[in-house]
Nucleic acid binder design. Structure first.
Lengths: 241, 241
DNA sequence: GGTCCGCCAATCCTATAGGATATTTGATCC
DNA sequence: GGATCAAATATCCTATAGGATTGGCGGACC
């Protein structure tokens, strides 16, 4: 057959891939989501993004379309579409006739800009979350609370989920999407330095969660602001420029 | 020849297209910019985005890859890359095996979310612009001030430039990019209703400009907040849902 | 010994052909 | 007359081949 089925990524020709895609989406986004086998491009997109976030593709690394196509067992077209989307999200950059490369690691100026933005948006999101968060999300929030994360990746996932839930809690999709896009870069930056799991961060998280559960908007905003400021202080130490 | 040169978009095979691309970029971004013929995909991207913003492609309209390829005289690949980038920016959406379509017109909820976001970010940007805007941008700001725009498009361009300069003035690229991305949607929404050129908006702009020129951060923030609130009121009237 | 020029490999970019799918249209049946 | 099913069309998705360009490498020249 023309479609290599060596365990990488399979096109939507058979029935099995479709089912697996359905399971994947429904498992990740909850049962209320429509079944949408969004195509190979999106699959490849997630794969590459995961590789970037796990530092399997470190910052400032060349990414060859040919290599990816061979490695994933798909044609170049979906690779190109995925890379174009990643470029639009700032995770890779394209130089004409030279190819794609993962974005270089954040420098001091970019870190400052990123946290200025977070400090502007995320406390507001926490305030609104305290006012209007749905009960279901509130319960999910409890799941990322007290449990001590064993590994570095475990903490990172928990942190991502924590901030995502609060951003969504405000009910504003634009805010949630913007913060999610930014959080990816924070994740990469933090992973670059394999920073120790900060016990403080967990306490700060719990403070925010407590305020939101108590529907105390002002306290939630303040706690989130404090968390981001402290987080900024912890990350800033890793950089000198 | 394989490359149709019927006046649409030309590949980078000859010398003339390269020169024209150079002239275009240098004319738009100033003489200090490196020459970067970024490829067909970006050219196509700008073209489609322009067509969407000019309502030549109205909201919720099917966009065929084949048709675009024929119309622009290029292959399908750059069209796909451009559409992927547009999708990442929320201007088109893709449905598997059905094709691309321009995003539907904003509904009331989206308008609310968008202006909540703007109200959160843009006054802050104005404050920072008043504190730190470069002298060159300050002069450019004067150019979009008093002059009465004759046409609807003229006002729209002026408005876009006004908000772009202030967003850039704060020196935070993330803020500037986010606001630019959002402003496109505001532009489309406004164009849909061919709203009359609001004389008020010009006065509000002038108030912001005056505050920034006077380096009065608090006044700039307040003026921008007022401008956005009024702008929201003007646009909200067009929608019922 | 340093610098410049031409060649080679790797990569990207474009174009075309073929298979698969969703939507539409028309005819048939109830 | 309305609804249902099937064929046809238009479109997308994938794969492969060929042309064009960049960056690095070795040799020649000053």
């Amino acid at each position: 057959m023309l479609y290599p089925v060596n365990g990488k990524i399979q096109p939507f020709c058979g029935k099995v891939p479709v089912m697996s895609a359905l399971e994947a989406t429904s498992a990740k986004q909850g049962p209320s989501q429509i079944a949408r086998p969004s195509g190979l491009a999106e699959e490849v997109y997630r794969r590459i993004r995961a590789d970037i976030m796990s530092l399997k593709l470190p910052p400032d690394t060349r990414v060859s379309v040919d290599s990816l196509a061979r490695e994933l067992g798909v044609s170049q077209t979906p690779i190109r579409e995925a890379l174009s989307m990643l470029e639009a999200n700032g995770l890779v950059s394209k130089k004409h006739f030279t190819g794609y490369a993962t974005a270089p690691r954040m420098d001091r100026a970019q870190l400052d800009e990123l946290f200025e933005f977070r400090l502007l948006v995320e406390p507001h999101a926490a305030r609104k979350a305290a006012e209007a968060m749905a009960q279901s999300d509130m319960e999910s929030l409890g799941a990322v609370s007290g449990a001590h994360a064993p590994s570095h990746d475990g903490f990172a996932d928990m942190d991502t989920e924590f901030h995502k839930l609060i951003a969504q809690g405000g009910g504003n999709h634009l805010i949630a999407d913007s913060l999610a896009r930014l959080h990816i870069h924070v994740h990469i930056f933090r992973s670059c330095f394999r920073s120790e799991i900060a016990e403080e961060a967990v306490h700060e998280h719990d403070a925010v969660i407590a305020a939101i559960r108590g529907r105390d908007a002002a306290a939630a905003e303040a706690a989130m602001r404090r968390h981001i400021e402290r987080s900024y202080g912890r990350l800033r130490d890793f950089i000198r420029d």
